[in-house]
């Protein structure tokens, strides 16, 4: 069986395309970095791929709001292709700037369950961190075990770096959050690392820097109601190996004890990408 094909978008200031492509390849994907304009101009078609990744970066310098201009390019030029991609049951991930792009296009959190396919209506936003600063720091994340998200299956808690200035997830009202929460679409949240695993999630705002940005309900990432489209601010690809964890020199980097890819050195972030590859394989 051929390896699932992964389109990793780049161009216009996306800058995590190399590592995002690499981690998919590490877990059995066949990834390709493709400039957005290849899809816009029709040189390439999204339909040829099994997975779409929108990596992190600073598309268009985050001017006019992070992800806005890139989101517009996709919303206006790739609307049909994106709709068809999700309708075909294919997974999409947006990381950091990619998450911002997916939120601004309206792909995340997307419409409710009665009609789950993309309608390209923006329902949430990611705005400036409460601190007012772009920061690179490590956070602890916990995942909703009941989420329909195909990307986060079986992942409980991981350490990850965040690297953003606009990561505060907001929605207009608390009822919007209640609806997402009921659907288990608030797939990943910032948690206090001192809490027992599985008990970290809380709706009450956590203090800086446990929540690095002041996100409402401590949301770090959300999925759409199909569970196929997922976005998050932290960078799981940046901890694909334990040697990227700040504590590896202390001999205490968390992660699997063994792996077919990196032996005892697989990092906690890789499973998310393996989940998507395995999901695609399982549907064949």
């Amino acid at each position: 069986m051929s390896a699932p094909r992964v389109a990793v978008l780049f161009g216009f200031g996306i800058n995590c395309d190399h590592e995002t492509a690499a981690v998919f390849n590490l877990v059995g994907g066949n990834s390709e970095r493709i400039h957005l304009n290849h899809f816009v101009q029709g040189n390439r078609v999204l339909d040829d791929f099994d997975i779409l990744a929108v990596p992190g970066g600073f598309s268009f310098g985050d001017h006019l709001g992070s992800g806005r201009l890139m989101g517009n390019r996709m919303r206006f030029a790739l609307r049909e292709q994106l709709h068809a991609f999700v309708a075909a049951g294919k997974p999409i991930i947006g990381i950091c700037n990619g998450f911002q792009v997916l939120v601004k296009t309206g792909l995340l959190p997307g419409p409710n369950t009665s009609n789950p396919l993309p309608d390209f209506v923006q329902r949430a936003s990611l705005t400036l961190n409460d601190s007012g600063r772009y920061e690179d720091r490590w956070v602890t994340l916990e995942f909703d075990p009941d989420s329909p998200c195909i990307w986060t299956k079986g992942i409980q808690r991981i350490d990850c770096p965040v690297r953003h200035g606009e990561g505060k997830f907001v929605m207009p009202s608390s009822t919007d959050f209640d609806a997402l929460s009921a659907n288990h679409q608030l797939a990943v949240r910032y948690v206090d690392p001192s809490t027992p695993v599985g008990q970290g999630v809380t709706d009450d705002p956590l203090p800086f820097p446990i929540s690095p940005n002041g996100s409402m309900r401590n949301v770090a990432g959300v999925c759409d109601s199909t569970g196929l489209v997922f976005g998050l601010m932290p960078h799981p690809e940046a901890v694909y190996a334990k040697w990227l964890h700040p504590h590896h020199t202390r001999g205490s980097a968390p992660g699997p004890l063994s792996s077919d890819v990196l032996g005892e050195w697989e990092g906690e972030g890789l499973q998310m990408f393996r989940n998507a590859i395995e999901y695609v394989m399982s549907k064949r």
């Binding site: 590592e19 772009y134 990227l244």
Partner: peptide
């Protein structure tokens, strides 16, 4: 901390 020191997913010893 306001510099991205981890993009490219390669930084094994960080500034802190």
């Amino acid at each position: 901390r306001q510099y991205d020191h981890e993009v490219i997913a390669q930084t094994a010893v960080k500034p802190f």
